[in-house]
Design a protein around this nucleic acid. Structure first.
Lengths: 221, 221
DNA sequence: CGCCTTCTGTAGTGGTCGATATAGAATCTC
DNA sequence: GAGATTCTATATCGACCACTACAGAAGGCG
C-alpha cells in the first residue's frame, strides 16, 4: 500500500529531486549556479518540523530557519509550501512510515502482520529520536486548506481499505478463522493505530503503547 | 471527573457569565448599556467553530462572523481568544462531552461504564448535528501555543488517570476479574476513544464505530 | 574572456493575524 | 434631566503570513 515512489534519484548535494513540477532538471548536465545546500537534508529538516507542528502551524519562516536556507531557495527547490509538504509526506511514507507496509507485506498472515505493525507503531510513535506520533495522522488535523486535509485523509482511508482487502484475502485463503470480519478488523486496527499516535503525542510511553498493541490483538477471533 | 463548573448563572440575554476575569459583574444591578447579543448563543457558535477547525485555525474574524458580533464586543465579553477558548472547553465538557463522565458514574461497574462510554462515543463522534470527533481531542493537535496545548492535554491525561482509578477501585471491590489491569485497560480505552474521534473526522460511520466499540470490549478479561 | 543559465540574499509585496483606540449609543443611578 | 457606566461600530495597530522582484553571485559553455 505504500512505497509507490518514483525514482527520486538519490542525489546528495546538487539536487535533481523528482518533485513533479519544480526543482528538477531532466537528466544530464546541470547548467547555471549549482545549489549550495543539501536538498535531501533540507527536506528531512522540513519533515521533522511538519511532523512536530503540523502543516498549517509550520510557517515558511520556520521552515527556512531549520532548513538553513532563504525563502527564494525554498521556492526554487520545492515549488511552494504545499508542494514541499507533499514531498515531505511522500518521504515520510518511504522512511519513517514504511514499517507499516513492510509488516503487512512480510508476515505470513494478516493477523501476524497487524500484530507486528501495532508493535512497531508503539515503538515508532514514541521514538525519542524524532517527533512523537504519526505525521500522516497528526499533521493535518487542524488545517484550513481543504485540499491538504483531503489529500492526507485519502491516504489514511486508503490504508484502511488496503488492510481490509489484505484481511479479506487471508480469510478467503483460510488463513484466518471464518469468524473474522475484514472490514471490522481493519476499522478497529486503524482506530487503535490512530489512537496510539495521539496517545504518544500526549506522552504515553513505548511500554504503555506496546501493551495497548498486545491488548488490541485480543479482538481477533 | 467532569462537571466541575462554577455557577455560570443561566442568564439568557444580559450576560453575567462567570468568566473568571472578564465580562462578569458580581451579582445584582447592571449599569451602563446592556449587551445587545445573547452571550450563551454566541458562545455556542464559537464552540461549534473551534470544534470544527481547532483553536489556531479559527481566527477572531471567523469567530465574530459566526457569533454575529464585532471584535470589541468579543473582547469585552470574553477577554481574548484564549479565554474564549477556555470557556468553550468548559462548556463542551458540560454539554457534548458530558456523556463520558455520566456513563462511568451511572453504570454499576467500570466495565459496563466503559462499554456504554464507547458506545455513546461512537454516536456522539458521528452525530450529523455537530462537527465530528471530540473537541478535546482534535482542537489542539496542531497548535503553536504551548499553554493551550498543555491545558487540553492535561484534561485528556486526567481523564485517563480517572478511568484507571475507577477500574482499580472496581477491581479492588471484586467487581472485575482479578486479571484486569487497571492502567492497561485505561490506556487501551483512551487509545480507542481518541482513535474513534480521528476515524469519525475521516468519515467513519456511526455503525462502523459502534462495531469498533463492541470489539474493543473483547479486550476486557 | 563573454554569455547564458541558475541559484542566493536583500528587501520587500499585499493580506491576514490577534487585539485596540476612539467616539458614539444605550441604559443605569441620582 | 445630568452624570456615570458599559457596550458597540469604525478604523485601525504592529506583527506575521505565504510569496516574490530584483540584482548579484557562481557555475557551465563557446
Amino acid at each position: 500500500m505504500a512505497t509507490t515512489s518514483s525514482a527520486k534519484s538519490g542525489t546528495t548535494t546538487t539536487g535533481a529531486g523528482a518533485a513533479p513540477t519544480t526543482g528538477a532538471r531532466a537528466g544530464a548536465a546541470q547548467r547555471g549556479r549549482p545549489r549550495s545546500f543539501d536538498r535531501e537534508a533540507a527536506l528531512e529538516q522540513a519533515l521533522r518540523l511538519f511532523w512536530e507542528r503540523g502543516y498549517e502551524a509550520t510557517s515558511v519562516a520556520d521552515l527556512t530557519a531549520v532548513m538553513g536556507i532563504r525563502p527564494p531557495s525554498l521556492y526554487a527547490a520545492f515549488g511552494d509550501k504545499r508542494a514541499l509538504f507533499d514531498e515531505v509526506v511522500a518521504r515520510y511514507r518511504e522512511s519513517h512510515g514504511a514499517y507499516s507496509a513492510r509488516a503487512l507485506a512480510e508476515e505470513p498472515t494478516a493477523r501476524a502482520g497487524v500484530a507486528r505493525m501495532l508493535r512497531e507503531a508503539a515503538a515508532e510513535a514514541t521514538d525519542p529520536d524524532h517527533p512523537w506520533g504519526c505525521l500522516l495522522i497528526s499533521s493535518t488535523v487542524n488545517c484550513t486548506s481543504p485540499e491538504v486535509v483531503e489529500a492526507v485523509r485519502a491516504l489514511r482511508n486508503a490504508n484502511v481499505r488496503a488492510l481490509e482487502s489484505l484481511i479479506r484475502a487471508d480469510v478467503a485463503a483460510g488463513h484466518e478463522p471464518a469468524g473474522a470480519d475484514p472490514a471490522a478488523l481493519a476499522q478497529f486496527t486503524a482506530t487503535v493505530v490512530q489512537g496510539m499516535s495521539q496517545r504518544a503525542r500526549d506522552g504515553a510511553t513505548r511500554a504503555e503503547l506496546e501493551r495497548v498493541a498486545a491488548d488490541a490483538m485480543r479482538v481477533w477471533p
